[in-house]
Computed example of a mutant assay.
Amino acid sequence: MEGRMQVTEWTPGTMSEVFHSDCPARVVLDHVTSRWGVWVLMALQRGDLRFYELRERIEGISEKMLSQTLRTLVRDGLVWREVEPSTPPKVTYGLTPLGRGTGEPLAELFGWIRDHAFEILDTQAEFDRVGGK
């Protein structure tokens, strides 16, 4: 297929292969866990959103970064994009079946982080208090 990376020669075996620099999973992991990728995927878990709704839901993301992140996730097949012809065009985003598969693992990770955030912050404060020793 033109424009697609050929990975047919990759034969997955053990989990340790993700540590190899040529493992295709590393590229996907970089996109899913990028600074904004994880937030976009989590925001879309609740349903389809227009561009401006995503921008409002994800505090701190610029329009440029949201556009770049969405473009990457659409290219990866995790997010779909629909343009409704109007002036200005209405663009809606949602998760593909592949993208919905990220929901449960990300939700578990977010839950763990939420449950342990104060403990981690306390540990950081203690580390800083004793001078990092």
Rank of each mutant, 00 (worst) to 15 (best):
R81M: 14
V74Y: 13
L29Y: 01
Q68W: 11
V38D: 05
E82C: 08
T102C: 15
G103T: 12
W39M: 12
G94Y: 14
E119R: 09
Q6T: 01
S62E: 10
D30W: 08
V7P: 00
L95S: 09
T123Q: 08
F118M: 02
L70K: 04
M42C: 00
L109F: 04
Q124G: 02
G131F: 05
K64G: 08
Q68G: 01
P24T: 01
I113H: 03
E59W: 08
P88G: 09
W112T: 13
G101A: 10
R81W: 15
M5K: 06
T92H: 08
H116S: 07
P105G: 05
R129W: 04
M65W: 13
M15T: 07
R50T: 03
H116L: 05
A25T: 06
V32P: 00
E126S: 00
L54H: 03
D76L: 15
E126N: 01
A43S: 15
E104I: 04
E104Y: 11
M1S: 13
I120H: 08
R81A: 09
G60L: 13
P88T: 11
W10M: 00
V130Q: 03
F110I: 05
T8P: 01
D128N: 04
T14I: 09
A43H: 13
R57Y: 09
D115G: 10
R4G: 02
A25V: 11
A107R: 12
L54I: 04
D48Q: 14
S21E: 13
V28C: 06
T92V: 11
A43I: 07
L70P: 02
E53R: 02
S34F: 12
D22S: 03
S86T: 13
P105F: 09
R50H: 13
Q124L: 10
Q68R: 15
E119S: 10
E82T: 03
W112N: 02
H20T: 02
M65H: 14
L73Y: 06
G37T: 11
A117L: 01
W80M: 06
M42R: 02
G77N: 13
R55N: 14
R55Y: 10
A125R: 11
G60F: 12
V83Y: 08
I120P: 03
F51W: 11
E9H: 10
T123I: 03
G99Q: 04
E108G: 03
L44W: 15
R81C: 14
D48P: 13
Q6P: 00
P89I: 08
A43G: 09
E2L: 12
A125F: 08
R75G: 02
T87S: 15
S16W: 00
D122C: 02
Y93V: 01
G101I: 06
L95R: 05
I120F: 06
S67W: 07
D122K: 05
L49C: 14
